[in-house]
Amino acid sequence: MLKKILILFLLAGVGLIFFDLFQSYQSASELTTTAKYYADNGAKEVGAANLVSAIVVTYRGLDTLGEVSILFVTAAIISFVLKHKPEEEDKNRVIKPASEILNTATVFLTPVMIMVGIYIFINGHLTPGGGFQGGAVIASAVLLIFLANPKFHLNHSIIAFVESISGVAFVVVGALGLIMAGGFLDNRILGLGEFGTLFSAGALPIIYIFIGLKVGAELSNIVGILAQEQNIKN
């Protein structure tokens, strides 16, 4: 009983703080100093039309590196905790086959979905989208395969290869910026090119492609571990 009263008091307190926050909230009429700097100079310094991509990849590139590492550690912990033992697999379990429509659609849609994912992260510096969104679309394609065929076995060596190669390449491109340009993850190691075209913004599209491949591999790995046909111990 005391616990419930305490929880109610805590919620009321947090609610009061939020009410105060709401009352003092004024919709801003001009950008803050940092945002104004990015809006004024972002296009000139980075050469990307999409300023969010410019911030994610270059200005705050270290945050993205940390984030990709967190995702990697998460996937590693999940696969460690849910260790798959093939010999325990119940061979006699009959899985009802997926419907004809789902099977046919999977064959036609999977390549298209992977292509859309690649399109999204190649054009990340021009249009909304980028490595994270494209990686999620690729993971959705893997998910569709699992829906159609629950016994599908994801090839872990390919996943590990793609993930480690793109992770290393991300850091190598970042370190090249240290030598050839202003600092770590500086995208001016290649020419900035003409604003608004595909080959512009220096190394930003290259870095985003590696981020997309890495995120796609990691999310596919998480989905694959959780989707595998393995009953919990009784």
Binding site: A35, L51, V52, I55, R60
Partner: peptide, 12 residues
């Protein structure tokens, strides 16, 4: 334009 910094953080 709107402030791009919170959007980049929320993306992460």
């Amino acid at each position: 334009i709107v402030d791009p910094v919170p959007q980049a953080l929320v993306l992460t």
